[in-house]
């Protein structure tokens, strides 16, 4: 430390120190929740209202996330499933990524459809992973049964009762997409919403993708757009507290600490540039 000014020290805080402080700021609120208020933001309200306004019997396509992004989407997906299963609608699950099937099993271990009186094949089913990205979306829109020979367990599609009436895109009322990939979130717009704008598109992306998706929302192509972080708000809204609410305090703690470090770094940098770095 000898010979170093305060400004130098502040500008060169070892990253190990920063990581440790951020880690503590995350762990403490997880262990001892601060109980900070959970205000429900506008995007989450729109998400909730869109699902709540689904007419009985509506068919909803759920394109869930891949395994790598699961920690981020966990609370939003679980809360959305609780909400959807509580409504008189039918669900078709779809995985655009090969690892998505593991996510589906994990989700259903947290949300029990039987608790809502839902039966596999009658109220919901999973069509598995279909390779091809946008070409798969296009194929589903044009001829559902040709694109889906069987469900994810290998049961032929003709033997699934609720699949009998599904022909193409016109049978769906809503798509709900959870994704960490831009080509997926925009792909649904290109292959489904452009073709049939009546379909409500609910899109939950990683928060870093929000700037990219915002123009589509403003243009009316997305009915509700949210990042993955506000899962706690949704849990609060539907009255099913879960990991999202627990994570909210840790999230706030980490952000506040990072904000402090950004301010310190900038003050040090500006002070140095202004020639005031000689204070010992």
């Amino acid at each position: 430390m000898a010979g170093k000014s305060i400004i130098d020290v502040l500008e060169n805080i070892p990253r190990e120190v920063i990581y440790t402080i951020v880690l503590i700021a995350m762990i403490l609120p997880l262990l001892r929740p601060l109980g900070l208020p959970v205000p429900v933001s506008e995007p989450i309200k729109k998400w909730y209202d869109a699902i709540e306004s689904l007419p009985p019997g509506s068919l909803v396509l759920i394109s869930h996330c891949n395994l790598g992004a699961y920690p981020a989407f966990d609370s939003m997906q679980v809360a959305t499933l609780h909400h959807l299963f509580s409504r008189p609608v039918k669900l078709v699950f779809f995985s655009i990524d090969a690892t998505g099937l593991v996510v589906y099993d994990t989700l259903l271990s947290k949300v029990d459809p039987k608790a809502y009186g839902k039966v596999y094949g009658v109220d919901y089913f999973h069509i598995g992973y279909i390779p091809g990205g946008e070409t798969a979306m296009k194929a589903l829109a044009e001829d559902f049964k040709a694109a889906v020979p069987s469900d994810y367990k290998g049961t032929p599609i003709d033997q699934i009762p609720m699949a009998k009436d599904i022909k193409d895109i016109r049978d769906f009322t809503m798509i709900i997409c959870f994704t960490s990939a831009g080509e997926t979130s925009i792909g649904w717009i290109r292959q489904w919403i452009v073709v049939r704008p009546e379909i409500k598109y609910l899109c939950c992306v990683l928060d870093m993708m929000l700037p990219t998706m915002r123009p589509y929302y403003e243009a009316g192509q997305v009915a509700a757009l949210t990042g993955s972080a506000p899962g706690g708000e949704y849990e609060f809204l539907i009255g099913k507290p879960g990991s999202g609410i627990k994570k909210a305090d840790a999230f706030t703690g980490a952000q506040l600490i990072l904000l402090v470090f950004i301010i310190i770094g900038n003050i040090a940098s500006i002070a140095k540039r202004m020639g005031k770095g000689g204070v010992r």
């Binding site: 920690p71 966990d74 990683l206 928060d207 870093m208 990991s243």
Partner: peptide, 12 residues
Amino acid sequence: VTRIDLFVGRLN
């Protein structure tokens, strides 16, 4: 925000 979100998920 996304990185924090992912990491808090793993901490959880």
